[in-house]
Design a protein around this nucleic acid. Structure first.
Length: 493
RNA sequence: GGUCUCGUGGCCGAGUGGCUAGGCAAGGCUCUGCAAAAGCUUGUACAGCGGUUCGAAUCCGCUCGAGACCUCCA
């Protein structure tokens, strides 16, 4: 059996996953900033790491998955402005900052539930860990990697870089960064433009503020993740994940803070999920090139021709590797929906397979399963896994003609494996069924009568009546499918 | 401007020195009262130019094109 290999973006190479504590895995992922709705690009990252979380569990690891909520602290303008996103939005809308954070946190959880992501083991908030952040800042001051200026504390990149390689993660060169940084207008307290804030003094207008040894203020951009990953996973842990756009400066600063305070860079492996683009450009809250989850689920967007179930979006996203840029389009979604339906229909057919045929079939289920595992062990290559799932689809369909292909035990084992891959690892759902679960029984009864009436008309070759029934049902969104052993119906496919 | 990534058949998207990726669409076929659905089947692609090699989509160089980061952003 192959071993799990993960691409470490720190080293730029595949690494065999060897957990620090056998049988356990610690995973930290940068969560959302809750000052507005998450868009589908954000969702892609969280789905990617949800898949990682699920697969680690599939492999038998006991996983502690920590994903934070940033409800304070990220500066909106230059460090000099000293105003954070949550605070600014709050003033615009005349509400309490925590009201904003709460609203969008609830929305975020709704979205995550809609996309069937598993909740993290711990979901800490930045505002709930001010004490830890102050403490880490003090540690950095004591160790000589930070300095106070006018009530604010900055990380001293120049001092740090004499001992540690700042820029190691993102492959940046300090001299180039210095020359490339634009001149600030002299209002800064920073010794060097590449220094970053650990703690910012709050101006009078700033409403999110906490007491600290340096006066009232708020934590800097990058500190919360260092403080919270250390608290819940330790100074050294297995995997740190996040979106590609966080690699610099956010993750670079995290490493510097961790090394500066804990003498350890934190994560053994850094994973970066790539961007989801829309019209060839990355989705971004600030440019407005976004698609919201609600718009996808309702179809209410100029980018979409129809609504799509969340599982279709999941399937679409997992059909691309997490490290590749994926371009979102209505056409691509439609293609994904068809494929997803074929997969689910085959799974359903297998789950309803009668116990026919020999015990052991000719399809080598063990070999097939090994291929699936090998695909996922190769840096979570979900597109290859899905390709293998379609091999199973083909076998299931052939088996309907010739029951010796799967055989009784083969069908049983294959179904167990498929359940694990489709539902447990990929996190897909049989949404066509779920969507109508409540009224399904009543609808089935009514449709049974309608289809029976149509069958009578067909038996009498009364085509005008049978076609009228079919057309009128179609107009109502119900599609009749005539098979060899009777008619069935589907809704909204 | 600097750093980096990518460019695969009509579309999406894997692969990374020799062996059919896969999905969707399209053509053909089966089934069918018709249609739909469903199933079977076909298609030889790797931006351009040059080089290395017995052999390159895969390695190297150049050119063109696209994107990301360098400033908050998954």
């Amino acid at each position: 059996m192959s071993q799990l290999q993960i691409y470490d973006s720190h080293q730029g190479a595949l690494k065999t996953f060897t957990p620090l504590k056998e049988g356990h895995a610690g995973l930290y992922v940068c969560g959302p900033t809750v000052y507005s709705h998450v868009h589908l690009g954000n969702v892609r990252t969280f789905l990617s790491f949800d898949m990682v979380f699920r697969y680690l569990q599939f492999l038998g690891y006991k996983v502690r998955y920590v994903r934070n909520i940033t409800d304070a602290g990220h500066l909106i303008d230059d460090a000099d402005e000293g105003e954070d996103k949550v605070g600014r939005r709050a003033k615009l809308e005349q509400v309490e900052p925590m009201e904003i954070a709460q609203r969008y946190t609830v929305n975020f959880h709704d979205v995550m539930r809609a996309f069937n992501t598993l909740p993290p083991s711990i979901e800490p908030t930045a505002t709930g860990h001010i004490v830890e952040q102050i403490s880490m800042t003090q540690q950095l001051l004591e160790n000589g990697w930070a300095y106070e200026a006018n009530g604010s504390i900055y990380f001293d990149v120049d001092a740090y870089s004499k001992v540690h390689p700042y820029g190691e993660l993102s492959g940046r060169n300090l001299d180039e960064m210095r020359s490339g940084t634009r001149e600030l207008d002299g209002q800064t307290d920073k010794r060097s433009p590449i220094d970053f804030a650990l703690w910012k003094k709050a101006s009078e207008a700033h409403i999110m503020r906490w007491a600290s040894p340096w006066g009232e203020g708020f934590p800097g951009w990058h500190l919360e993740c260092s403080a919270m990953s250390t608290k819940y996973l330790g100074t050294s842990f297995d995997i740190h994940g996040g979106g590609m756009d966080l690699k610099f400066p956010h993750h670079e600063c995290e490493i510097a803070q961790n090394k500066g305070a804990n003498q350890d860079g934190g994560a053994q492996v850094w994973m970066h999920a790539n961007m989801l683009t829309l019209n060839g450009k990355r989705m971004s809250k600030s440019t407005g090139n976004t698609l919201l989850p609600d718009e996808l689920l309702s179809g209410d967007s100029p980018h979409l021709s129809k609504a799509y179930p969340a599982s279709v979006a999941r399937f679409f996203i997992h059909q691309a590797h997490y490290r590749s840029v994926l371009d979102f389009s209505d056409e691509a979604l439609q293609a994904a929906e068809k494929g997803y339906q074929r997969l689910i229909h085959a799974w359903k057919a297998l789950s309803e397979r009668p116990g026919e045929g020999p015990s052991k079939g000719s399809f080598d289920v063990d070999h097939w399963q090994a291929q699936c595992v090998a695909a996922m062990n190769n840096d979570f290559n979900s597109p290859i896994l899905i390709a293998h799932l379609f091999d199973a689809v083909k076998a299931i369909q052939a088996d309907q003609q010739d029951r010796s292909l799967l055989g009784q035990s083969g069908a049983k084992v294959l179904l167990q494996h498929l359940n694990a891959w489709i539902f447990d690892v990929l996190g897909l759902q049989d949404q066509m069924r779920h969507a109508h679960a409540g009224s399904q029984k009543a609808l089935d009864a009514a449709m049974g009568i309608v289809l029976q009436a149509r069958k009578q008309a067909r038996d009498q070759k009364d085509w005008s009546t049978s076609d009228a029934i079919r057309d009128q049902l179609a107009a109502g969104g119900i599609q009749v499918k005539d098979g060899t052993d009777g008619s069935t119906y589907t809704i909204g496919e």
